[in-house]
């Protein structure tokens, strides 16, 4: 049964999400603020991610350390817990790392069985992160 998706740890991340909010525009030119925003059309949920980058080639955005990351928006337990866990994981890592993150990784990160109908909720934060890379390319 899928009720065990509402494990204590998941509920904790939902009630007190880590890295919740929005990073203000930085004053120092060596830091770059990028953001991504996605909508889940099946329920109208929305997640916005802001990422603060530092590094030598940040102007090209192809790499750079994620100094700080925050998310905000509205969503269910799963999408919010996923965002909380994902932002914890990616903080301090290189932006390049995002491209390699797959569906399976998120499911493992959540550590609970995710049914097909909830997959979109679980993956929404990752999609928002990937949006940042896509924007960088365009």
């Amino acid at each position: 049964m899928s009720v065990n998706i509402y494990k204590e740890i998941i509920l904790e991340h939902w009630k007190n999400p880590h890295n919740y909010g929005r990073i203000p525009r930085p004053a120092r030119p060596s830091l770059k603020l990028v953001q991504g925003r996605v909508l889940n059309p099946s329920c109208g949920d929305e997640i916005e991610m802001t990422v603060l980058l530092s590094g030598s080639r940040i102007n090209k955005f192809d790499s750079g350390e994620i100094k700080e990351i925050k998310f905000q928006g509205r969503g269910c337990v799963i999408s919010r817990a996923s965002a909380s866990l994902l932002t914890d994981y990616i903080k301090g890592k290189d932006l390049k790392k995002i491209a390699n993150l797959k569906k399976e990784f998120i499911i493992k990160l959540l550590g609970v069985p995710i049914s097909i109908s909830r997959l979109k909720c679980a993956l929404l934060p990752l999609e928002a992160l990937k949006q940042i890379i896509n924007d960088k390319k365009s």
Binding site: M1, S2, I5, Y6, C43, V77, I78
Partner: peptide, 12 residues
């Protein structure tokens, strides 16, 4: 509570 969470727990 989010509709998805309500529906999920009811589904069980």
């Amino acid at each position: 509570f989010h509709g998805h969470d309500i529906a999920q727990i009811l589904a069980d």
